[in-house]
Design a protein around this nucleic acid. Structure first.
Lengths: 134, 134
DNA sequence: TACTTTATCGCAACTTAGTTGCGTTTGTCA
DNA sequence: TGACAAACGCAACTAAGTTGCGATAAAGTA
């Protein structure tokens, strides 16, 4: 993310331009996979409560998404990325992005009609063995 | 689950017929939604380490499945149930089962061809507002 | 630049879910 | 009924995330 992009993103969401915020966003913008809070605490010299609080702010503002790999750590990535899911290798823990041929939009519409439940989001991840590990 | 079903299930998996095991399985067989470890500790007079260890055994044997709602607690249900997903109300926390018109089998096949990743399982849950809360 | 307001931050103590070591008990099968 | 492994209880521990509170620092205004 370029400095001017950062400034306009922060302005748009009424967020102060602080060191913690800049550094967290910098990690996200270089990351090739979803990032967890522990990784941030290990890679940014900032108190962990600031990390957790900042993640909550970015999540509330819709700047990042929360992703669940089921290992007890929440992960996050920019919500501006094209909608996708992940292939998680249960052996080496590598993560690949993947998109569905036909996302779940139609299924969700059908479920909403059948059940009168209003779907707002879903969490879908695939687990298995990557090309190297299988 | 009937007593004779229980006995043959345990025998089939080389598991001893113990009090803890019987009580946990009894909870699962009456449950209408996925159950977490805390619920078991609150509803069975058994040490919590036994609960967690037993869940691991049942999971390894493939008798139960692990389900992730993203709230920091793992949930479990019988793996013998017809494959389904869940509609989780973010307001009242209610849970409904739901099946897709066309499950993810075809998508998984297509992903495996494109990526040479071997998919073994997926986790898919929907979040939103139930009929009452919306 | 100085002043004011409010968001943000650091620190330490705490909570919640889950794990581990170890000595004891209990099912199962011969 | 005896032997043996599986299962168990207990207590102490770990890992991830949260909270209260006083101190600090952006951002807007005078």
């Amino acid at each position: 993310m370029q400095p001017n992009e950062l400034v306009s993103l922060l302005k748009k969401h009424n967020l102060k331009n602080t060191k913690v915020r800049r550094e967290i966003l910098a990690v996200f913008s270089h990351a090739e996979r979803p990032i967890d809070a522990i990784y941030l605490t290990e890679n940014i010299k900032v108190n962990k409560s600031s990390i957790y609080r900042e993640l909550k702010v970015l999540l509330d503002k819709g700047i990042i998404l929360e992703i669940e790999f089921g290992d007890g750590k929440k992960r996050y990535e920019f919500s501006s990325l094209k909608h996708h899911h992940h292939l998680i290798c249960t052996n080496c823990k590598s993560v690949e992005d993947v998109t569905l041929n036909q996302d779940l939009w139609l299924e969700e519409k059908s479920i909403e009609e059948k059940t009168s439940f209003k779907i707002e989001r879903h969490n879908l991840e695939f687990f298995g063995l990557c090309a190297n590990c299988k």
